[in-house]
Each structure stands twice: as C-alpha cells, then as structure tokens.
Design a protein around this nucleic acid. Structure first.
Lengths: 282, 282
DNA sequence: CGGGGGTTTGAGTGAGCTCAACTATCGTGG
DNA sequence: CCACGATAGTTGAGCTCACTCAAACCCCCG
C-alpha cells in the first residue's frame, strides 16, 4: 500500500547506502497524491510557493531557469525515482521551474510530511540530505560543462550522464536509451543555440560516436570515444555506496574518530567506482 | 570561548532564521582547529578524503573543478562565515577543490562533530541543510550565468552577486568591495579566456559601470545599469528570512497543515526581498 | 490536405578564442 | 642601488566556433 514513486526513490537511496527495514518503511509511508502531466506542462513554476515535494514516478522532467528575453537554461534533468523538489524544501518560493518533457506522473508529498519524517528518523533525514547534496554535485558539474567545453564535448557529456543515470534505474538497454527531449530542449540544457546544437550533433553522429532516431532514442555507438571526447567520469554522480559515507552508524564512528588525531586524512582503502564497465575510459 | 569563524557562521544562519539561544550555543560549541593558508594554497584537494568541514574565518576562497588539459572552472566563491565543505558532508571524497585566493584562515570541524550536532539538534540540522540548499541554488544560477550570458553580462552578474553577499557580512563600503582574485581567476569563474575577460572588463569600465584598482578593489559606479546589464536579481541567494521557511516550529506547522487541503498553494502574504536598496532595478 | 512542431540547411556575422609580445609592479638577491 | 625573475595585466592580429536570420523540409495528426 505505497506508491511506485516512493519505491523507486527508496531504491535510489538504497543504492547509495543500504537502509534498515524500518527506515525504508518510514519513507514508503510518506503520504501524498498522484498527478499526471502532459509533455510541455509546467509542473512547478518558478517563484511558486513551495509546499510539496515532487517525486517523479514516470516520465522525464527538467529544472529550468528563465533568462531575460524568454530564453531558458535547463540546469538538470530528472528521471523516475528522483525527488526533484527537495532542493526547495526550506524555501518559501522556488527559484526555478520543473518542466515535463514527456508525459509524466508525479507523486506529491507535503513538506509537512517530509519534516515529520526527518524529525523522527535520523537515518532518513541524512539519506534525504545526502540526496540533495548529490544533486548539488551534478549542478557543479553542469557549470563546468557549459563553462569550459566545446559544443560536441557538451553533447557527449550530457548523453553520458543521462546514460549512466538511466542505467541504474533500468532505463538503458545495451547502448540505447530514450531521451524524450527536443533538440531545442537539449540546446537549452547545454547553453547552445538550436542551430549549432543540430550541426554539432550531426557531426558526432557522422563520426560514429552516437546515433539518434526520430523516436527520441539515443544509441551510443562508440562509448570509448564518446567518453574521451567528453572527458567524462561518473564519480560526481555519487550513485553508489563506494563514494558515499556510512552515515547510519555515526554514533559509533564518532566515538571512534574522536580519539584519533584530527589530521588523520588518509588510510582507508577504497574500491574503484564501477558503474558501467562499458562506459569507462581505457 | 568559541571561534570567530563559528560566530560568523552563526550570524549567517541567523540572518535566514533566528536561532534560539541553545541552538546557537550548540553550533558555537563545535570543536575544531584553525589553520592558515597563503594565497594560492589548495585548502582541500579534489578527490580528497572528506573528513572535516571547513569554515572560512577570514580570507577569500573558491570551489573549483579541474577540466582536461589543466583548465579549471570555478563554481563558487566563499567568504568569511561560509561553511564550504558541508557540500561533501556525506561523501567519502570531494568532487572539487577548495582554493585560497588570498591569505585565509580556516576553522576545521571534524565531520563526526557535525554529525553529533545534527543528531542532537533538529533545528541546527535543518539550518545546516538549508545552508547547503542555498549554496545549491547559487550553483544553479552560475550555470545560467555561464550558459546563457555574454561576457560583459557575466562579469556584471558576478560582481553583483559578490557585492550583495559581501554586503551582508560587512565586506562592502558604499559601493566598494575587495575582490582579491586575479583576472585569470575571474576568467575561470566565468568560463572566459583571460584575454577576452580583460577586454570585456575594460569595456564596462569605459562605459562607467564599474571601476577596479590595482589593490583589487571593485567600485560600482552605476549599480542601476549594472543590474540591467546582468539581469541580476538577488532572490536566488536566499540570504534573508523572507525567502526561507520557518522550519523551527515544524511540529506545530505540521499539525496545522495536515488539516488543510493539499492543494492549498497560496494565500500567505510575503514581504519583498530587500537586501540592498541601492542594488535594485527601478 | 493543410497545419504545426520539430529538424535540417545555408549564408553571413561577430563574439570569443589562441598565440604572441609587451608593460607594470613587486620582491629578491647580488 | 640595480638587475633579475615572477606574477599580473594589457594590447594586437588572425582565426573559428557559435550565433542570428531565413528558408526549406519532414512527418505526424487532425
């Protein structure tokens, strides 16, 4: 008796840090209601009153900020199992809009219910906080992407980020994933004009790095080259447990660490990130 | 018997949401140690083990990410009273480096102490979480800035952001503030080449919008025009209480809200943001 | 069969890049 | 006191990536 959206969100958090049964149950018990949106709908407007948290159940959405003269900059994409509005949990008003690129179901949880959860469950409070920090790491990477990369590199980087993120939620088969975003949407995400995006995209298609279909599928033909072009490495996504702190047992950690020198900065060995074996540089 | 860094940080949080005495005291009691850095020092390296949280006591630092071929993108600047490493609180390793642009004192708080605080003080846990969300809002704005604005607009926007943020901590007198960052540093923040930054900066100086001195002072000569050029509005900074939720009494809010319809999205009146009367569009 | 949204193409322009040299300033050491 | 190097800022020249404007094309759908 819970919703698919929360189940997907729990699975996402679980990938970073295994949750105790009671913690997962507290998350899955979050009250809310479903609502459907069509492609092109604004799910939450910019500068809207932030009272509920939107969890994507299905579909494809983005965060976007308006710039002068009607232009828009997309600052992130979000997929099923993402809690998009957690970023505005403590804000009275949103600073960006949430936009549906495809038919989308949202599960709306009132902030009051989220507050109740985090007041009564320290582990989930940390898991949610961590989730917002992981999103913030993605924002930082996007700034790098639009700030310091050429058009074809930006495209490659965006495709790889989406591929890796979709892969973890089962949205990628072999080397193909769905990207239900128009080219002008992609251009808005990359800070490029539509025309130039189109030509750059054609160029990397001609070079055999990727292919796209009318059905809005993206096919990665040469992941190796694509990764090299983009300078992509998936660590910033913080998708798995090996990049994330074990926060559930901070009480123990704390007593252990307090005895140690504060300058002890190293020592612990660590497994390499292994998100997608076929999406790694050689 | 506390440190200036924590006092400044408490004041920053207080500006968003007044803190009860016991909560502020819990924050001020955070243990840690001081360390000094020279201009050009790396305070925390990229991909370093994240074990402590850095609070800026004095100086001027930035977050930067390395790009291929030695280039760097600055994704944020931070000033005294900012808790820079809270962004990596739950990460094993950092995804960006913290760099000192000027002589800087850092107060280092072990993560374990932060975990202890947030496990035992719900209000401070929320205040810190909110702080990381406010930083994330700034990251989003930077993506817009480097993605969709021309060189002179970017410069104007950056100067205004820094002016407003410094103003709240007393780092701005009349229309002058110190910016101890080289032109190539500014270029790295804006995603521009050094040469082009230099020429664009000269252009807006020639137009009488700003002036700069050798001593790394920035003087805003025509704030009005600068704001119009940048398309700047300070809401995204979430510096004051009128943009921020009253989270301290969520228990009461919650019982009150639970009785209401979940579709009640409006109603509450709200004061306009009033950060700097002389930095507002007409 | 006629929209209309999305994609493609072409042509011309300009913002921003690279490379390279030159100046200014300051701290250091002979 | 000056020579020197290092760092920061400035200027010029040439090029190219990415932009705008404009028109065509495609395909789905009513």
């Amino acid at each position: 008796m819970t919703t698919e959206a929360l189940r997907k969100y729990a699975a996402k958090l679980e990938r970073r840090r295994s949750l105790a049964l009671q913690d997962a149950e507290a998350l899955l018990a979050l009250p809310g209601y479903h609502r459907e949106y069509r492609a092109g709908d604004t799910i939450i407007d910019e500068n809207a009153r932030a009272t509920h948290c939107a969890i994507v159940e299905s579909g494809f959405v983005s965060r976007m900020k308006a710039v002068a003269d009607g232009a828009r900059q997309i600052v992130a994409f979000h997929f099923p199992g993402d809690a998009v509005d957690l970023q505005c949990l403590y804000f009275k008003r949103t600073d960006h809009k949430i936009y549906a690129h495809a038919p989308t179901w949202i599960y709306w949880v009132p902030h009051s219910a989220v507050f109740h959860l985090i007041d009564n469950n320290k582990t989930m409070a940390k898991a949610l906080w961590l989730d917002t920090l992981a999103d913030a790491a993605i924002f930082r990477q996007w700034t790098v992407n639009v700030g310091h990369r050429a058009a074809r590199e930006r495209i490659a980087h965006l495709f790889l980020e989406i591929a890796v993120r979709l892969e973890t939620i089962g949205g990628k088969r072999d080397d193909t994933f769905e990207l239900p975003v128009t080219q002008s949407g992609i251009a808005e995400a990359l800070g490029l004009s539509l025309v130039h995006l189109n030509k750059s995209l054609q160029a990397i298609k001609r070079d055999g790095l990727v292919d796209t279909t009318k059905g809005r599928l993206v096919i990665i033909k040469d992941g190796e080259k694509l990764i090299r072009l983009a300078g992509f490495s998936p660590e910033y996504l913080y998708l798995t447990s090996d990049r994330v702190e074990d926060f559930a047992d901070t009480e123990e950690l704390q007593s252990a660490e307090n005895g140690r020198s504060t300058s002890d900065l190293g020592g612990r060995s660590e497994a390499a990130v292994a998100i997608s074996p076929n999406l790694r540089p050689s």
